[in-house]
Simulated assay, not measured.
Amino acid sequence: MNTIINYFTENRLSSTILVSVVTLVALKKIFGKKEDITKEFQKDIVYVYEFGATTSQGVPSNSPFCAKVLLFLEFANIPYKRVPSRPTGPRSKLPFIYYNGQFVYDSQFILEFLMKEFNVTQLVPQDDALATRDLVIRKFFDDTMTPVTMYPRWYDEKYSPTFINGVIVVPPYLAFIRNYVVKNIRKQLYASGIGRYPAEEVYKMGRDYIDAISNLLGAQQFFLGDTLSLCDLTAFCLLIQFRYSPLAKNPLSDYLATKQNICEYIDRVKHTLCTEEKWNLLLDSRNNLYYRK
């Protein structure tokens, strides 16, 4: 054994090749094609594929989109199991679900599918004007607020290390996996445009958006009045990333904390969506988890 160690210590080229081979094997094992496990799934259970390589603190998921699906299932009392996964499928995104032989991708289409399949109508506005308002608010949070939320978590060197090291927990010899994930997310943020802005401009945009949210909400119980709607579920799952996650302390979370009506709204939606007991169970990512037989 000592002879082998001495050989690779004295031969840098061989050491580099060895490290490269080990890295490729590890990446292939983690990100490569996996066997089909759906044959083991039970009938009439919704299987939610969500990020499995990260840990969450204070929130059901670090992804607002995964959290949205999980909380909808809890709200509607639909039986489900959580499947730790990686972004796969035709869209290379999470979450997606498997239900009785059918895959459904994208949180918006997942919710539409589940509402139809299980006849869930409580969150859908019946008035056309309110339905339009609901859609616009959902798109604002999904498409406009999400990149701003991701910036301090993944891109800003001042705040991102706390979040990254907190959610991607790997031993030191596998740090390259974390670096690989972060590099790819930063590429996506740069490609989307938000990564090209200096931090002060991103946080200025974020504060403006939070002001707009506060003004739009006003003194209402929910965004459309006195009744919880889909847009509240969408808004809640993004806003909790600022309010409830201890890993996401940044200028935007600090600014949101100054908006009393938003903070009260977040707590109100939480208690409307599920009981405290269900919420605590959701925070434990090991709960309701699918296990291989």
Rank of each mutant, 00 (worst) to 15 (best):
G101F: 09
N6V: 00
I45A: 05
V136Q: 09
E35K: 14
K68G: 04
L238S: 14
G218Y: 15
Q220N: 07
F51A: 08
Y209V: 00
T23G: 06
N184T: 13
R153P: 02
D232S: 15
T54Q: 07
N2W: 08
L174K: 11
Y190L: 07
D267I: 01
L73A: 04
L238M: 09
A212Y: 14
T88R: 07
N280E: 09
T16C: 09
L283S: 08
T88Q: 02
L130D: 10
W154V: 05
T144D: 10
E276S: 03
K43Q: 03
C263Y: 02
P161L: 06
I262P: 03
V202W: 13
K183G: 00
E264T: 13
Q221W: 03
T16N: 12
T162Q: 05
L24K: 15
L228A: 14
S61P: 13
A76K: 11
I45P: 10
Y180G: 13
K39Q: 10
D156K: 01
P246R: 03
V46C: 08
A131P: 02
D143F: 04
F65P: 04
Y155L: 04
V182P: 01
E40W: 15
E276Q: 02
E35Q: 10
E35C: 04
Q57K: 10
N215I: 09
I5F: 14
Y209I: 00
E10H: 15
Y151V: 03
V169W: 00
E10M: 15
A219H: 12
R12C: 12
S85A: 09
A248C: 09
E157W: 11
D211K: 08
